[in-house]
Write a protein that binds this DNA or RNA. Structure first.
Lengths: 349, 349
DNA sequence: GATTAGCACTCAAACAAGCCGAGTGCTAAC
DNA sequence: GTTAGCACTCGGCTTGTTTGAGTGCTAATC
């Protein structure tokens, strides 16, 4: 169908232009910049059709047209050609993973910063450990002060949880080490969800001065089994204020306040299914505050069982193609790096 | 001097009113709301004097007057009466410290949230360990995967640093434990600044498969001695957008971007001397982006050697009295809690 | 001499009117 | 089916006017 083909082209041109300029686009613009074979009158007719079909909105009678969310959906699903990044940009991404410091939240933060600076959108990075991968592996009590110890719980997948617990009395560091060894041996392979119960059980047979510690362990284990989300980092918040859609301070504020609410962020980043890449447009994001934002997100398995979800948050008028390209490249680099380390290779810094 | 006394009263009234309304205040307002004995003409003369003395600015001829930074300085230094918080508010603060979870960054985050919600300013909480307190106490290598281990370094003061290191080859978890024990015994009391050197020295005599680990330890130790600042948390960013002074999106953006730059935040929170409470007004903050912000900050010793600095960031037209009151209360509650735990008391949750 | 009433003056903000230009929809011609 | 042409719409910009809050100054009053 020739006509439909043309309508698509025109719609695409409108979306492209609007993404670029944030200004309602008129028939004349399209005729001049994109479809020089056609007069503005023809474009006008087509645009009128497209509006009727629900792909375009007009803010008012004489202001050109703006793509609807339905249009963006079509754009993302059908019109996007995969695009590559320049080799400079690829290098820039790779460089995030280069440094040796593996401070725990550090990598996420670096990814967030890099993506924000490349795209001008806000980036959120969430690290999650699926329940099924939460199997106890090691436990270590490290004395911190006379009455407090740091409890480290490591799962088979390599996730680490640390917390400070009160000892409830003087316990020598030797004792702490011994207890750590024994418990680690006894509990190896225990699902995290069972851990609390097991601790409680063991507590029964423990000597008096250990009772308190065991109870504390039990409580912490319960906490540990709860929090799937181990790290959540947001970067490039101030970028959003560059976009004309947030010239209204109230809009900006309501959006920024979402970034400050952990639960909401987790919701935003948790895609329904198991899809690697997800694009959610406007109301599809699920939050009132983000009803005119879009979120492009990608999830990557980290090899050790953890799942890293990276989301780019911007106005619905988003550079979807670029966002996806950047995320794809991050994913590619990430798996490269994991492969390298998994195969035991290591370079000098 | 009676006259000077009156000038002070008027200046104070102007500042109070401006803090409340953010609107340039005119002679009539003062005469009606604050100094009913005096006519607006008299106030006008006084205000004219105050302007000449540098305490007031006038945005333009007919717009009332606005306190200068010099005025705020005087206000903070001389005019502030200590004010108390309501018992509800005191309870609200106490509640932050109540929960048992001592997840490491958790408390800072809770403090930041609470203070932001109480004051509507942005809150930053920084935890620092002074160099002099950085003395090695314990070290623990916890196996995470076959090729990686979690390195935990604890200082005498109870500060904890963790990082993932590559092992460079298979090392059994028993070996890791043994090494941890030996190193901990050998290095007890060593200043953190020496640690890297000591590791390097020990590496010389270590067996082949440990060489790599020792080198990694040495590098991490070097890192550890560098970063005084162990945690930095910011809350309530979006609050600032409520204030009319940030109705201009560009101003808001430049300020928000400061919050995203760790180094700048550390600078902002690092007070010159050893003062417990600090108020910095406008340019005194030291950053171009915060030239019309003020920062009220307080530092508290955490007992274990760490120092917690809490800063409230708002427009120069800040409720200084309230800010100080809230911080004071947090400090009081903090030391209470520390005393309780130090004395070994512990309550059931 | 300090205080106040009164008045002329200033200036931003709010409002209204008018123009401009980008845009549409429709119709008639190609 | 396409296009030229024209009437019409409507937000945004400009300009002019009004309004009101405010100042500074002067002269009268306490």
């Amino acid at each position: 169908m020739d006509l439909i083909e043309r309508k698509y082209r025109i719609l695409q041109a409108i979306i492209d232009d609007y993404i670029l300029t944030a200004l309602p686009v008129g028939s004349r613009t399209i005729s001049r910049k994109y479809e020089q074979k056609l007069s503005s009158a023809t474009i006008r007719n087509e645009m009128s059709d497209l509006e009727e079909l629900g792909y375009l909105d007009s803010p008012h009678t004489s202001a050109g047209r703006v793509p609807s969310n339905k249009a963006y959906r079509l754009y993302v699903d059908q019109m996007l050609r995969p695009m590559a990044l320049s080799s400079e940009e690829q290098a820039f991404i790779r460089q995030c993973f280069d440094r040796r410091t593996h401070q725990v939240e550090d990598l996420s933060l670096r990814i967030a910063k890099a993506l924000s600076s490349m795209t001008n959108y806000t980036t959120a990075v969430m690290t999650r450990t699926p329940k099924s991968d939460q199997v106890f592996s090691h436990l270590q009590l490290v004395p911190v002060t006379s009455h407090r110890a740091l409890l480290i719980i490591v799962t088979r997948s390599g996730a680490v949880r640390q917390s400070l617990i009160e000892l409830g009395g003087m316990i020598s560091s030797d004792e702490l080490y011994t207890v750590s060894r024994i418990l680690t041996a006894q509990l190896d392979g225990c699902p995290l969800s069972d851990l609390s119960r097991r601790f409680a059980a063991i507590a029964g047979g423990a000597p008096g001065d250990m009772q308190h510690v065991m109870r504390a362990l039990s409580m912490e284990a319960q906490q540990a089994s709860k929090d799937e989300v181990s790290a959540l980092v947001v970067g490039g918040r101030s970028n959003l204020l560059r976009f004309p859609e947030y010239a209204d301070v109230d809009k900006a504020r309501s959006l920024l306040s979402v970034f400050e609410t952990r639960d909401k962020m987790v919701d935003l980043l948790s895609t329904g299914g198991e899809m690697e890449f997800t694009v959610r447009i406007g109301p599809e994001t699920g939050l009132e505050e983000t009803r005119d934002c879009s979120i492009v997100s990608a999830s990557f398995r980290l090899g050790d069982g953890r799942v890293n979800t990276i989301g780019l948050i911007g106005p619905t008028r988003m550079q979807y193609g670029r966002a996806l390209a950047v995320l794809t490249q991050v994913g590619r680099t990430l798996t490269d790096v994991i492969d390298e380390t998994e195969s035991g290779r290591d370079s000098e810094a």
